[in-house]
Amino acid sequence: MTENELSYKIIGSAIEVHRNLGVGLLENAYEIALAYELKQQGMNVRQQISLSLKYKEITIDNAYKIDLIVENKVIIEVKAVLELNPVFYAQVLTYLKLTDIKLGLLINFNSELIKYGIHRIVNKLINE
C-alpha cells in the first residue's frame, strides 16, 4: 500500500475510535484503540518505539518515542489536547526526518469533530 492508501485507512480507523470513545480520555486510550483498529485490518503496527539519536560522537538512548508506526511508512502522533501547539507539528516532522519516513499524521482526539483534529505532515526531504 502507498502512504496515501494507508493514510485513508488510518483516518477511517481514527474516525471509528473517535465515534466510539468520544473526547476526554488520555492519549494512551486513543493510541491503544487506534492500534487495535489498524491491527484488525491486518496492518503491521508498532507502538511506543523508543529510538536513539546520534549527536556528534555520542549516542543518546531513548532520545524520542514515536506513538505508532504503520507498515513502516506512516508515523502517527496521538494527542488529546485542547489545541495543537506548533511544536507538535515540528515534533512529527523531526520524527519523519530522523526515520526517513515520508508521511506523518498528527491526530488530536480531543476535537469535537475528528476531521478537524487530523493533520498530514510530509517529509519533503524524501524523494519519490
Rank of each mutant, 00 (worst) to 15 (best):
K102A: 10
N20A: 15
S13R: 13
I118A: 13
L25M: 12
V78W: 04
L84Q: 02
I114D: 08
Y55M: 00
N20Y: 14
K97A: 14
T2Q: 03
L53T: 01
E77R: 13
E71T: 08
T94Q: 07
I66H: 03
G42S: 12
N62G: 00
N85H: 14
G42N: 03
V17I: 07
E16M: 14
L51T: 00
I118T: 08
G104L: 04
L38V: 08
I107C: 11
M43V: 07
I49G: 01
I10M: 07
Q91E: 12
L96E: 03
F88W: 14
S7V: 05
I49M: 01
D67S: 07
S7K: 13
N108M: 14
Y95I: 01
F88R: 14
P86I: 11
L38A: 06
L106N: 14
E3A: 10
I32M: 04
D61T: 02
Q41V: 03
S13G: 14
K79R: 13
I60Q: 01
L93A: 07
K79N: 07
E57S: 06
K54T: 04
Y36F: 10
G12F: 05
A29G: 03
L106I: 13
T2Y: 00
E3M: 04
A33M: 06
Y30R: 15
T99N: 12
I10C: 09
K39S: 08
V122P: 01
Q91G: 07
I126M: 09
L6Y: 04
K124T: 03
N28H: 01
L103K: 15
F88T: 08
Y116L: 14
V81K: 14
A33Q: 09
T59K: 02
L26I: 04
E112W: 15
N72R: 13
Q91A: 11
I49A: 01
E27F: 05
E77C: 10
V17D: 12
S13N: 15
Q91S: 12
R19Q: 12
V78P: 02
G24C: 09
T94N: 11
L34I: 08
G42M: 11
H119C: 08
A29Q: 10
K73S: 05
A90P: 03
L103A: 07
I11L: 10
S7D: 02
L26F: 09
K39D: 01
I32K: 08
I32H: 02
V17W: 15
V122K: 10
T94S: 10
L106K: 14
G12D: 04
V45Q: 05
Q40I: 05
E5S: 06
N72P: 01
K102C: 05
I118D: 07
I126F: 04
M1Q: 02
L68P: 00
A29V: 07
Y36A: 08
T2F: 00
G104S: 11
Y116V: 10
Y64F: 10
K65N: 06
D67E: 04
T2P: 00
K39A: 08
I126K: 09
D67P: 02
V81G: 07
V92W: 06
L96C: 04
N62T: 00
K97W: 06
V122E: 09
I126W: 08
N62D: 01
L51G: 03
E83N: 12
L82R: 14
D67Y: 08
N20S: 15
N20G: 13
G117F: 15
S111T: 12
E77A: 12
